[in-house]
Design a protein around this nucleic acid. Structure first.
Lengths: 341, 341
DNA sequence: TGTGTTCTCGTAAACGTTTACGGAAAAACG
DNA sequence: CGTTTTTCCGTAAACGTTTACGAGAACACA
C-alpha cells in the first residue's frame, strides 16, 4: 500500500542498500547516484517508514513530554505549558526530533503511562514536569537507565540528569522582602502540597526571608491545599480566621490565588486595597484579573529551548564536543508589579 | 539491551509464536500455557516493542492531534484545548490508543508537519483543529486516504470524515437576539480571519439575526484582525471611530475580546457600563476579567470524548456493528451571562 | 483399527529499514 | 605492468513483532 525503499530502489535500478546510504548521507556513495536518489525520493514523495527505522536503529527520534492535567480542573487548563512546549519543540525540531506530548487522565499517577512509554520504546527520552520532592518517576527512570530531563528539581535520582528549574526560594524571599518594605509584618503563604517541589522551595524562601527580617514564622499563617482554584478558595479562610489576620498573602500559584481572591471577596476584602496579594508564578490570568495581580514571571519559551538543549547534550547520539557539565540550572523569576499589593 | 519476546520464549521453553499468540489473546493456545505466559510476562515485566508491532501490523496504535500555537502569542497559550484533549485522550485510552500531540512551531503552516506524520506513519489517524473554510490539510488527508477527524467544519473534503463543531451561527445569532432584546441596535462584530471557519460561521449568524430584526448590516461595524490580543486591540478602534459608534460589541474570541477591552479602556469606555460586550467562546479568562465577560461556553471535555468516538467508529479496525452514519455533529454553545452586557 | 476432527504448537516468512561485510572496478603507485 | 589503495555498490543479516501454514497429538466416531 505504501511506498517503500524497495520501490524506490527498483525504480532507480539500484540496490536498496545504496538508496538507504544515499538518503542517510553516508560517505560511501557516488555523488551522482546520491543526486539521483535524492531527486527520485523527492519526486516520488518517498519518506521512510518510521517504525522500520526505529526498529532497526533502536531509536524513535522523538521525545515524550508527560502532560498531566490537574485533578478536578475541568475547565482551567494549563496555559503555563504551551509557551514552554513551543520552545521545547522548536529546539528539538532543529535536531530532527519530534516532540510528542503524552496525555494522562487527570488525577491518575503518571507512573503507569511513563512505564508504557519507556517499555514500549515509544520515545528516546522523556521530559518530566511538576517534579515532586521525592519523585518516583525519577527513581524509575534512573533505575531503568532511560534518558530524561526535568522541569523542576527533585531530591530523587542524584544529580545524574539535566534539570531546569525556577528560583522559587528567591521569588518567595523577594515577595516577602517587598511586602516587608511596604510595611507588612503579618504575611501569609498559601501553597500546594509540599510534595510538589516548587511548593516546598517557595515556602523555604518565604520562611528564611521572614527570619532575616526578624519576623517570627507563624504556622497559622501558612496553609496548603489542592493546587487549583477550589484549593485556594477552601484554604484561604483558614489564615483569615486567625485572631491576628494577615495583611498580605503570597500565593504560590495563579489558580490558587484566584480561588483565594474569591474567598476574600466573599469576606468583603479587596486585594490591593485591604489586602496585599502576590502570586509566585504569573500567567495571563494574573494580568487580566481585577485587580491585576502582582506576580513573578518565568521566561517559559526560552526555558523550553534551554531544557531541550540540556537534554540533547546528555544524549550520546547528540552530544557535541562539550561534556554535560552544565546539567542543572535554576532560572530567575521576574517580578511584575501590578495592582494587587 | 532490552527484553524481547525471544527472551520470554526461551525462559518459558516455548516458541515465540506461541508466546505472541498467548499474549494477544488468540484462541489457538492452551489455557495452561496462556496462563504461564501471562504470568511470566508480568513477572519479568515484559512489554512488546512498539516499533516491532507497528512494523509488522502496519498500525501504530496512536492518534495524532495537531496542535499549533497561534502566531505572536508568546504568552497566551491555548487553555481551550486542554479539557478537550483530556476528553479525547480518555476515550482513546479506553480503546488502547495513545494520544500524541504533535506540536508545530507557532505561525508555520501545519501542512509540513502533517505530511511527516502521515508519510512516516507515526500515527494511525489524526485529529485536526482550527479548521479553515477551505482547508488544504483536509484536502491532503482525503487525497492521501489517511483517516482523520476534525474539530470544526470545513467546506473541504466532502462529507467523508467525522467532524464535531460548535454552533457558531446560533451563538452569533443568540448574541444578537440578546443584545437587541436589551435595546441595542448598533451592534459591532469583531472576528478573526474569515479563513477560520468558525469566524465565518459566527459572522453569518450575526448577519442573519440582524436582518431578522430588521436591522441593516453595517459593514463599518464589522472588523477582522489577528486572532489574538493584539488583533483585538488593533481592530476595535476601527468600529469605534465611526460617526455612529456601536453600543455593543460581540467578540468571536476571548483573546480578541481582551485586546478590545484594553482599547476600549484607553478610550474611557467601560464594558458593561458604556458598552455591552459579548464573547462567543468562553475561557477562564472571560470569567476572571473585570467586568466578567458574558460568553458562550462549549462543553470541551465531552466534545473530546465524542470526537474520539466518532473517529473510532470511522476506523475499520474499531468499527463496531453500527456504520458511520452519525459522522457530523454540531454542538450548542451555552450562554453564561455575566457582567459585561 | 482406520479415518476425520479438533487442539495446540513450532517454523518461517514478512513488515521496512540500516549497516557490516565483501567484492568488483577504478584509481594510484611503484 | 603488478600491486595496493580507494571508491562504490550489492548482498544479506538484523531489529522485534505477528501470523499463515502445516504438523503432531489427542480425541471422536464408525
Amino acid at each position: 500500500m505504501t511506498f517503500s525503499i524497495h520501490d524506490l530502489a527498483r525504480h532507480l535500478n539500484i540496490s536498496i542498500g545504496t538508496v538507504s546510504r544515499a538518503l542517510n548521507g553516508r560517505a560511501d556513495v557516488n555523488a551522482d547516484t546520491r543526486q539521483r536518489v535524492l531527486e527520485a525520493a523527492r519526486a516520488l514523495n518517498y519518506s521512510p517508514n518510521q517504525s522500520g527505522r526505529s526498529l532497526r536503529q533502536g531509536a524513535t527520534h522523538s521525545i515524550a513530554f508527560m502532560l498531566q492535567p490537574h485533578p478536578g480542573d475541568q475547565e482551567y487548563g494549563e496555559p503555563f505549558f504551551i509557551p514552554f512546549l513551543t520552545g521545547l519543540q522548536g529546539r528539538l525540531a532543529e535536531s530532527g526530533l519530534d516532540l510528542i506530548v503524552v496525555m494522562g487522565a487527570p488525577g491518575d499517577y503518571q507512573q503507569e503511562r511513563l512505564r508504557r512509554v519507556v517499555e514500549t520504546r515509544r520515545a528516546d527520552a522523556v521530559v518530566l514536569a511538576w517534579t515532586r520532592r521525592e519523585d518516583e518517576r525519577i527513581d524509575y527512570l534512573t533505575q531503568a537507565g532511560f534518558p530524561f530531563a526535568t522541569l523542576g528539581r527533585s531530591r530523587s535520582g542524584g544529580k545524574t540528569y539535566p534539570s531546569l528549574d525556577l528560583d522559587f526560594e528567591k521569588a518567595g524571599a523577594d515577595a516577602v522582602d517587598r511586602l516587608v518594605a511596604r510595611g507588612h509584618r503579618r504575611i501569609a503563604a498559601i501553597r500546594p502540597s509540599l510534595d510538589l517541589n516548587f511548593g516546598y522551595l517557595f515556602l523555604d524562601g518565604y520562611r528564611k526571608a521572614l527570619r532575616r527580617h526578624g519576623i517570627a514564622v507563624d504556622p497559622g499563617l501558612i496553609a496548603g491545599g489542592f493546587i487549583n482554584e477550589a484549593g485556594g478558595y477552601e484554604v484561604t479562610p483558614q489564615v483569615m480566621r486567625r485572631k491576628d489576620p494577615p495583611t498580605a498573602i503570597i500565593f504560590n500559584n495563579d489558580a490558587m490565588a484566584l480561588g483565594g481572591c474569591k474567598a476574600l471577596a466573599e469576606m468583603g476584602i479587596k486585594p490591593g486595597h485591604d489586602m496585599a496579594v502576590t502570586v509566585i508564578v504569573d500567567t495571563p490570568l494574573c494580568r487580566y484579573f481585577s485587580p491585576a495581580l502582582t506576580a513573578f514571571r518565568p521566561a517559559l519559551q526560552p526555558m523550553g529551548r534551554r531544557l531541550a538543549e540540556m537534554l540533547l547534550a546528555s544524549l550520546p547520539a547528540f552530544a557535541g564536543a562539550a561534556g554535560p557539565e552544565t546539567i542543572r540550572e535554576v532560572w530567575p523569576l521576574e517580578l511584575i508589579a501590578r495592582d494587587s499589593d
